[in-house]
């Protein structure tokens, strides 16, 4: 290396840096393309065939699986349930997450301890969570009904009731996701410069006005992120549903069945991977559409 040599002709320093960056980016990009995008297209392709273990014996059926979806009442049920989970779960976890984050933000002592406590469920295996909840929610011996009994409320069937099971599963999932929401909002809150609050206070703003005109708008990016990630999570809900009613998965009476669980059952209990792939395409389209709408409706750039 001769220090006196001028920069090599043709490639400027900036271009070289960009090339290096691209070289490093190429690895995750390749991973993303081959592990994520390519299988998604494969699913689209598979959905046009009837499944067979031997690829040369998969008859082409065109759009038949998509026709089949139109008459599948269980699929409709799964779709309705999945939307109900999302509509119920996402707002609940955002509101609770934001509420708890605001309280924790006001606390200065032991904040990390609280944060760890709220985060613990998020890193607990869903199967273990489901097991503990199935005990706590037991209609006859569960602690939740014991507590309700103290207030004179009769025992509730919870997970064993077709009308209560979906709400109950949603609450378990919200409880589990809450820690992540809290950490997210807490980080968002701490990113808002103190100066804004101080300036507003000098101008005589009330607490509500501070929240309404400073906190909420500046938290918008976090809210959008939380809504999008939360929505995708609920649209793909699977593990908790399976484990909370293990011997009648998606039951009772199909009341907790989700799209993801239905896809799994079609693929791996019925070996009907063609139809499963078609439903996967449907789920993909739903997630894409909802995410785009959310990004468009919710994102607002706020500058002060």
């Amino acid at each position: 290396m001769r220090p006196s040599e001028p920069a090599r002709r043709g490639v400027s320093l900036a271009a070289r840096e960009a090339l290096w960056a691209l070289a490093f980016l190429a690895i995750p990009l390749a991973f993303f393309l081959f592990i994520r995008i390519w299988p998604a297209f494969q699913a689209l392709w598979l959905s046009l065939f009837d499944w067979h273990a031997d690829p040369s014996q998969r008859p082409f059926v065109g759009l038949e699986h998509y026709h089949q979806m139109l008459e599948d009442r269980l699929l409709l049920k799964a779709l309705q349930n999945t939307l109900a989970y999302t509509l119920l779960g996402v707002p609940t976890q955002i509101l609770l997450g934001l509420g708890i984050a605001l309280l924790l933000n006001a606390v200065t002592r032991f904040r990390d301890v609280f944060r760890a406590i709220y985060f613990a469920p998020y890193v607990t295996p869903a199967a273990a969570v489901a097991w503990v909840f199935s005990w706590m929610l037991s209609p006859n011996f569960g602690i939740v009904n014991e507590i309700l009994g103290v207030f004179g409320i009769p025992p509730q069937p919870f997970l064993t009731s077709p009308s209560q099971a979906l709400v109950t599963v949603t609450m378990v999932v919200v409880w589990q996701n809450l820690g992540f929401q809290v950490v997210l909002f807490l980080a968002g809150l701490q990113n808002i410069p103190r100066d804004y609050y101080e300036a507003a206070r000098i101008d005589g703003a009330s607490n509500w006005q501070l929240f309404r005109h400073i906190t909420l708008p500046l938290l918008n990016p976090v809210m959008v992120f939380s809504a999008v990630i939360g929505t995708i999570g609920f649209l793909q809900l699977f593990t908790q549903v399976v484990n909370l009613n293990f011997t009648d998965q998606g039951g009772p009476l199909g009341s907790t069945l989700t799209l993801a669980l239905y896809i799994y059952q079609q693929a791996f209990a019925r070996f009907d991977l063609g139809y499963a792939a078609a439903i996967t395409v449907l789920l993909f389209v739903i997630i894409l559409a909802i995410t785009l709408v959310q990004l468009r409706l919710l994102s607002r750039r706020v500058e002060y």
Binding site: T160, S161, P162, D248, G251, P252, L253, A269, R270
Partner: peptide, 18 residues
């Protein structure tokens, strides 16, 4: 098997639970 089990389980549960 999974579908047929559900048919019978649901038949019973409709009467018992609903």
């Amino acid at each position: 098997e999974i579908g047929q089990r559900k048919v019978m389980t649901d038949a019973i549960n409709r009467v018992l639970l609903e």
